[in-house]
């Protein structure tokens, strides 16, 4: 068995197995680093940058950065937290998020992060972009809420490895582009998976809604990240 890697997070001594990312290593130590684009079991892509930490003075995304011996990691310093809050706010103003009317409210990770960071009004001006809603046989794609986390791209593919969801355009115009023909062949179960893996209310399975009342949903009960912190 290879030696454990020793490092610190906010001054606390931690250990991890070689090959772990900073995020995984922190999680194993009962320390929560907020993530949005990352999803366990999928290859990390480092797109949201909410998991940014400062390591020996340098900024890094903890979901993609492997932990190495002697790292001195800042996770909850005021500056790190301010940066994260800014990124969460950027996501709110970059899209059109109206939580009270959203099916994902209470289960939405973006909303949950905003609660955790106690965001009332973003420091940035709203951009009010014009975005569409697209309908597919089994699901709806609500571009107004999409945060371009790429979870759907990574998680939902055809058995022969074709991408059903893919990125289109670049810059602020990037959108998730759905292959209509392939999407039509999705099973109910796969459509459910697509909705569940979406951190926000961008992918919504058709013909079901508000099955669990708002107020009794996952993050209505406990803040995001508490499941990790409870294990400490």
């Amino acid at each position: 068995m290879p030696d454990k890697i020793k490092f610190t997070i906010d001054g606390k001594d931690c250990q991890a197995d070689p090959g772990m990312t900073i995020y995984e290593a922190a999680r194993a130590s009962g320390i929560y680093i907020p993530v949005l684009c990352h999803f366990e079991g999928l290859k990390p892509v480092g797109s949201c940058r909410i998991c940014s930490v400062r390591v020996n003075g340098r900024w890094m995304a903890s979901c993609t950065q492997p932990v190495t011996p002697g790292m001195v990691i800042e996770n909850t310093s005021p500056e790190v937290e301010e940066h994260r809050r800014a990124i969460i706010e950027m996501l709110f103003v970059e899209g059109n998020h109206f939580c009270p009317a959203c099916e994902k409210s209470g289960n939405c990770e973006l909303q949950a992060l905003a609660y955790r960071y106690q965001i009332m009004v973003p420091q940035f001006p709203y951009l009010f972009p014009k975005k569409d809603i697209e309908a597919f046989p089994k699901f709806l794609l609500e571009h107004n809420r999409c945060v371009q986390c790429q979870r759907c791209i990574r998680a939902i593919q055809t058995p022969d490895g074709k991408k059903i969801f893919a990125m289109k355009n670049r810059s602020g115009r990037v959108r998730i582009n759905v292959d209509r023909k392939l999407a039509a062949s999705l099973s109910d179960e796969e459509a459910r998976k697509a909705m569940d893996i979406c951190p926000v209310g961008a992918i919504l399975k058709k013909e079901v809604g508000f099955r669990v009342p708002i107020g009794q949903r996952r993050y209505d009960k406990k803040p995001i990240g508490s499941e990790i912190e409870e294990k400490r």
């Binding site: 951009l127 945060v147 990125m167 670049r170 810059s171 602020g172 115009r173």
Partner: peptide, 21 residues
């Protein structure tokens, strides 16, 4: 920079638009 951002990550994609505003 706004035009040439690949759009992958949030600070570059959204941040630069806000900076310009």
């Amino acid at each position: 920079f706004i035009e040439e951002s690949c759009g992958w990550c949030v600070p570059c994609r959204a941040g630069n638009v806000l900076l310009k505003k």
